[in-house]
Write a protein that binds this DNA or RNA. Sequence first.
DNA 1: ACTCAATCTGAGATTGAGTCTCAATTAAAA
DNA 2: TTTTAATTGAGACTCAATCTCAGATTGAGT
Lengths: 141, 141
Amino acid sequence: MTNESLIFKKFLARRDLRFTPERKAILEAVFDTHRHFDADEMVELLHKQGKKISRATVYRTLDLLVKGGLIRAMELGEARKVYEHIIGHKHHDHLICTGCGRIIEFDDGLIELLQQKVCDRLNFQAETHSLRMFGRCENCR
Amino acid sequence: MTNESLIFKKFLARRDLRFTPERKAILEAVFDTHRHFDADEMVELLHKQGKKISRATVYRTLDLLVKGGLIRAMELGEARKVYEHIIGHKHHDHLICTGCGRIIEFDDGLIELLQQKVCDRLNFQAETHSLRMFGRCENCR
DNA sequence: ACTCAATCTGAGATTGAGTCTCAATTAAAA
DNA sequence: TTTTAATTGAGACTCAATCTCAGATTGAGT
């Protein structure tokens, strides 16, 4: 049993929700994918694997994975939301190249610290944050 | 002639686009509004003022104002894009209360500086950025 | 002022990601 | 086994945003 399965099961149990075969299959497909993906890509991937799971269930389960803190949803300038793993990955933010669509991840502890200071100063209790910089990567500038 | 009119006219002229009565009315309505607004609110506001301007034209003109650097579009956690002025306003980022929807603006020069350093380090030429922190404001925590 | 090519507009159709509905199914507890 | 509640799938629905295209408007050139 993988780490993420345990965490997801615990999350579901806490809410009287069930670890169904569909949720298991989606969880596994999500954690087998080591890049950003969107909901409809996940539907397609599951169908390619012969798993007949409806769009509605995929959307619902991705929401659960977000609520459970296993994955993170982001808007990277496109219409669709994309997702990435949280578990087993250090927090990071994104540079988004408006030329080629490339996503560059970075993290900077000092920026995070200063963000926290801003929140403290304004008496705000941050739960999540999103820092995105849009521009040109080295290949496109 | 206001500052923003001059800038918008110049932007349009540079692209062989016209400063039509509709675009003028939208520009004025936008800069008379001193808070965040979305496209459909702007349509409604114009209609209340007796200006019969179509949704399509409002959407198109807001895009032009963004391209021209007069206003900025953001996603603040809701489905709709919201807009705010850029001209005459210092750059800032946002705290978004997930309890009451309140938007708190802040700016922190040191964070901006560190963002620039990240871009320099990764050879990335940033054009815009967006830093949002979601959580609970002092009234909702 | 007139012509003409290019831009602009409005009404409504269309798109598309995401959500909702509800009947049938499945899981788990009693 | 019975009962109760959660779950699923198919497709309808929502709604912000975009697109279409015919007719109107603009402005440069004459």
